[in-house]
């Protein structure tokens, strides 16, 4: 079946097997390898991208069901594969605070962090928000809870938190 997508600003029109997940389409067909396959079952967050501006897993999304979607991966946040000079503020913060070790979870962490701060700015509550009806704040506890869908087996959580805290303060 044919699917049209925007991937990191590039228009893509491909024919896919309906069984193909968005993650496999990106990685295997389009050679967009920033999103990683840590589990293939929604249990780790390493395949996270921004889909129509929201953080989204790609391993549990069928490509055919995403027709028309606009996808931004960690690579796209940086302005494409050669975008080193143009890193997103969140990416710079991860570098500055050593927010990774092996780097495998990192593209997912970064997309998730960007999407998460947007949710916070929109006033979405979380499991740890003491008052459901009040505007949530970017406390450490809130950041940790909201980022819990992104596992880091290397245990780089300390640096990840510091990076996101800095970005949250900068954007507040």
């Amino acid at each position: 079946m044919s699917v049209q997508l925007s991937v990191d600003g590039r228009r893509v029109d491909v024919n896919v097997d309906p069984r193909t997940t968005l993650l496999d389409l990106l990685r295997e067909r389009l050679d967009v390898i920033a999103p990683k396959k840590g589990c293939d079952h929604g249990q780790c967050g390493s395949c996270t991208v921004l889909l129509d501006g929201r953080r989204h897993l790609t391993c549990l999304a069928l490509a055919v069901a995403q027709d028309g979607a606009e996808i931004v991966t960690a690579e796209g946040l940086a302005g494409g594969p050669d975008g080193e000079h143009d890193l997103h503020a969140m990416q710079r913060a991860f570098l500055e605070h050593d927010g990774y070790q092996c780097g495998y979870c990192t593209p997912g962490q970064i997309c998730s962090a960007v999407g998460m701060l947007a949710e916070l700015a929109d006033g979405h509550p979380s499991h740890v928000s003491p008052d459901l009806t009040a505007a949530p704040k970017a406390t450490d506890e809130e950041i940790r809870e909201r980022m819990s869908g992104n596992l880091c087996r290397c245990g780089a959580y300390v640096g990840i938190l510091a990076a996101i805290r800095q970005s949250a303060q900068a954007s507040a």
């Binding site: 079952h41 249990q43 950041i143 596992l151 880091c152 087996r153």
Partner: peptide, 9 residues
């Protein structure tokens, strides 16, 4: 990784 838990954030 849903039934073998490792520490999350």
């Amino acid at each position: 990784l849903a039934s073998y838990h490792v520490a999350a954030h």
